[in-house]
């Protein structure tokens, strides 16, 4: 399959800000079954893009806008080819547990086996596992499939109930959430079972009529787990599927905070509003036009602005 991806992020400020610095995890990977054919980042105001590869092999772009601005728009366009892969096995040999316990696997996957940041075990998670009677099965593959389905069954997909970086307990208590929450929960459980597991940030070509729950036109998140005999297998608990031809991988990390699609810092006392739009279309399909920005984090009312005027500002007032 060929996909054309367009991802626009727009920040609006209610007062001019300056010295914005921003970093992006938005470039689709070019490895495994996936090939990146074209990739382009455009910013407004214009900025010089810099890039590097982080320690997990993700491409990171960053740039800064020194002058005063009221709006910052980042637009990426990518063309990606994803090959169909043979389906992973239904199950693997139970000796896979021993392989996972070996010191080589443990050493190589140190980071993907330990709780980190948003993937901390909790009381609420233990209760959830007890309630669903979820324990390790005979082999890792079967265990993970069961886990994938259980999360899908137990949670309702609802936006705006959680934040992108909420701890898992928020979703666990509400039994509602979105892809990041489900991925984080699955990571904690898989790692607790001794299965190396990593967070995947990316895009999904959505098929609502095919049973997908994911909101169309948004970034997506799922997980990959290391299954001896099958390699890294992608599980998408949001949609109860294994990652396949419709999943476009962008970055891997220990959790969301390792690979947020965009993160930035600016100077100036202003509130910001974030609007995001994503389209993933089969490459031959006609592209949609620009009327699709969705405000995901509106500007707070003026009064809510945290009062932290700079020393300069304070001194100015005393004239």
């Amino acid at each position: 399959m060929f996909y054309s991806i367009r991802h626009v992020t727009r920040y609006r400020y209610d007062a001019p800000v300056r010295e914005s610095v921003m970093q992006l995890y938005k470039q689709p990977k070019s490895d495994g079954a996936q090939r990146l054919q074209a990739f382009q980042v455009t910013t407004h105001p214009r900025a010089t893009l810099q890039a590097y590869t982080d320690y997990l092999g993700n491409a990171v772009y960053h740039f800064d806008v020194p002058g005063a601005h009221n709006e910052l728009v980042v637009e990426i366009e990518a063309a990606v080819e994803v090959h169909a892969q043979p389906a992973p096995p239904e199950w693997v040999d139970s000796s896979a547990w021993q392989v996972l316990g070996s010191s080589d696997v443990q050493a190589e996957n140190f980071d993907m086996l330990r709780p980190h940041g948003l993937t901390q075990p909790s009381e609420a998670l233990r209760d959830f596992l007890d309630e669903r009677n979820l324990i390790k099965a005979d082999d890792p593959m079967t265990s993970l499939r069961r886990l994938n389905r259980t999360i899908f069954d137990a949670f309702t997909y609802v936006q705006d109930e959680t934040e992108v970086d909420s701890p898992i307990d928020v979703a666990l208590k509400k039994r509602k959430g979105v892809c990041q929450d489900f991925a984080h929960i699955m990571l904690v459980v898989a790692r607790g079972w001794g299965i190396p597991a990593r967070y995947v940030s990316g895009y999904l070509y959505t098929k609502r009529d095919g049973g997908d729950r994911s909101a169309p036109d948004a970034t997506h998140a799922w997980i990959e787990a290391l299954v001896p005999g099958a390699g890294w297998v992608g599980f998408d608990p949001t949609n109860n599927v294994l990652a396949g031809e419709r999943h476009i991988r962008v970055a891997i990390g220990r959790d969301y905070n390792d690979v947020p699609p965009a993160r930035g810092v600016f100077k100036g006392p202003a509130n910001s509003e974030l609007a995001v739009a994503v389209t993933v279309t089969p490459a031959q399909a006609p592209r949609r036009r620009d009327d699709f920005l969705r405000v995901v984090r509106p500007m707070p009312k003026r009064a809510e602005r945290p009062a932290a005027p700079s020393v300069h500002a304070q001194q100015q007032q005393q004239q």
């Binding site: 300056r18 010295e19 020194p66 002058g67 005063a68 300069h312 100015q316 004239q319």
Partner: peptide, 21 residues
Amino acid sequence: CKQIHQSMYDAFIGYGVDELL
């Protein structure tokens, strides 16, 4: 005096860095 203060401040202290870069 206030105007002089402000323009001094804009020129040497709180200037926008973009013009200089």
